[in-house]
Amino acid sequence: MSEKDMNYKVSQMLKRSETNVSNAKKSFVRPEDEEREVVAPDGSIMKVNPIYDYFSGKRPEEEKPKNGIVEKFLNWARAESIWVLGFGTGCGSIEIPPLVTPRFDMFRFGVQMRPTPRQSNAFIISGYLSVKTLKRVIRTYEQMPSPKYILALGSCTINGGMYYDSYSTINRLDKYIPVDVYIAGCMPRPEALLAGFMKLKELIKAGKAEKANEYARNFDEYKANQKKIIKDWNMPDYNW
């Protein structure tokens, strides 16, 4: 975002806080990204909405599991090959290095780290999430291919943890994205994290880790919650 845009945003923000019109429609979208009508070369008028391109606006769809034994077999493969996104969203990510190093070595359990959301199917929310990060987490989560799983670490994701009264961090993760496994602790030890992975494997093998479909099913509800706290919602509703 360029400086000019920032200035614009901030001036908008200050204007609002000065007049204290909290109910007025707020816009954090940059002027060039706003939905508008443009005149095409042939003189016709068409509507453009730069933030929403064709795919971004598409709702996620439920993807039904395959039948019987096939799905079981695939679930077994999925369970034994969990690729975790390397996105340290909070302080719990300090316990990730011990997991990939000799002391705890989670590779032997089939768990590996991947750097990009496209290639990962598990997301560790390592503790508290500030609203600013939540925005990125939602974006990242939506980019991950289904079936995808979320492990939530620590008190912060359950009920706010230490930051229950903070203006910047969310209290309950399950309001914004569906969570498969919660691990108690502040922060949980690597051993607890491994136990969480074991639990996740169990769930996958039992075919119970279908939270990505739940997200698609309750998409509107999740979106409403997300939009309630992300005041500057300047991204597409769904990022594939």
């Binding site: 493969a77 090959s81 089939g110 199917n121 291919p145 289904s146 079936p147």
Partner: peptide, 14 residues
């Protein structure tokens, strides 16, 4: 592990 990874990858739904 590589075979499992392959299986997992081709079983991705999205």
């Amino acid at each position: 592990q590589p075979w499992l990874n392959l299986l997992k990858n081709i079983s991705t739904r999205t």
